[in-house]
Structures are given as C-alpha cells and as structure tokens.
C-alpha cells in the first residue's frame, strides 16, 4: 500500500523551504490524505515554529474498531452511574470473584461498584450517589465510552 506520500525527511525539507518564504501555511489535500503545515505563533516568540497536521479521508481513517456499549436513556426517577473514563468495565475485582454489587443492593457515594481497565491500569468506579442499584445495564468485560451509564440507581 505505502500510502503515506511523504517521508518525515521530505516534510522537514518542505518546511525548511517555506520557512524562508512569506507563506504561513501550506494545505495539501488529495483523495487519500490532507497535510496542513502551519507557521505558529508570530509576535510573542515563544511559539515560533512550524506544525504538521495530517488527516486521512473517512474511508481510510485510522479508527479504533472496538465495540462500545451503547446505553439507553435514563428512566424517569433514576440516577445513573457513569464510567469515569473509557475502557473495559468489570463487575468483579478478578475473574471468578463475586461482583462488587448486585442489583437490589444499597450503595452510597463512595461504594466501589466496578472497575474500568484502561491502558493496563485498574480504575475503581464509585457510585457517586446514594440509593439502591436498580439495574446493571452494561455486561461484565464490555468496552464502555467515558461517561457511559453503567448502572441505574433508585435514589435513597
């Protein structure tokens, strides 16, 4: 495929050439990619230099490809516990262990209700509210987006 059309050295050379000109940016757009070179700063001197901003057309765009849990809207009268960051949601501290909480259990703000594994780190999920777990809406070991609702809570 070899679709990246310019090597890093070629980009450096282009920048060196336009740096000596009066131009402040260069925008190259083809079907496959877009490269924007821009002279930054101007004035205060602290941000004096060029940037390169690459993007790729939608069809070619690098993407995550991961399946993310989609969550329906909150039913009336219930609160949601949101994933503090994106990652894999686990209901139990380790495989085979009992879940942190079951439906029907009461929680307070500091109750740990699950963990989210992100970039090899385990992050606890706190309930953040007091009440009874009405429903666990995300299955164990599922990818979630940051902010996704993972449990419904009936407020105390």
């Amino acid at each position: 495929m070899s679709k990246l059309p310019l090597t890093p050295d070629a980009v450096s050379e282009i920048v060196a050439i336009i740096d000596g000109s009066g131009y402040d940016h260069l925008d190259i757009k083809t079907d496959a990619f877009r490269l924007r070179l821009r002279r930054e700063g101007g004035g205060d001197g602290s941000a004096d230099g060029w940037t390169q901003d690459w993007s790729f057309s939608e069809a070619e765009a690098p993407a995550g490809g991961d399946k993310v849990a989609t969550v329906a809207e909150l039913p009336d009268g219930l609160l949601g516990i949101a994933a503090p960051l994106p990652g894999t949601f686990y209901r139990a501290p380790q495989p085979g262990a009992p879940p942190f909480v079951e439906e029907g259990e009461t929680v307070d703000e500091n109750t740990v209700v699950g963990i989210i594994e992100t970039m090899k780190l385990m992050n606890p999920v706190h309930a953040g509210c007091s009440g009874t777990i009405e429903k666990v809406v995300v299955n164990d070991a599922t990818m979630v987006d940051g902010g996704a609702t993972i449990m419904h809570v009936r407020p105390a």
Partner: peptide, 24 residues
C-alpha cells in the same frame, strides 16, 4: 494533532488528526 515540524525536529508517532488512542 498538530505535531511540530522542521529541521532538527523529528516526530515518531502513529497518531494523526482523527486518530484513536485505544484503551487496551
């Protein structure tokens, strides 16, 4: 993703505008 560019600058990255950083 506007990375620095120019002589004496090298950026080794796999991340462009629109790219994703997966959580794995």
């Amino acid at each position: 993703a506007a990375w620095p560019a120019g002589p004496g600058i090298r950026v080794d990255t796999h991340i462009a505008t629109g790219g994703k950083v997966p959580p794995f």
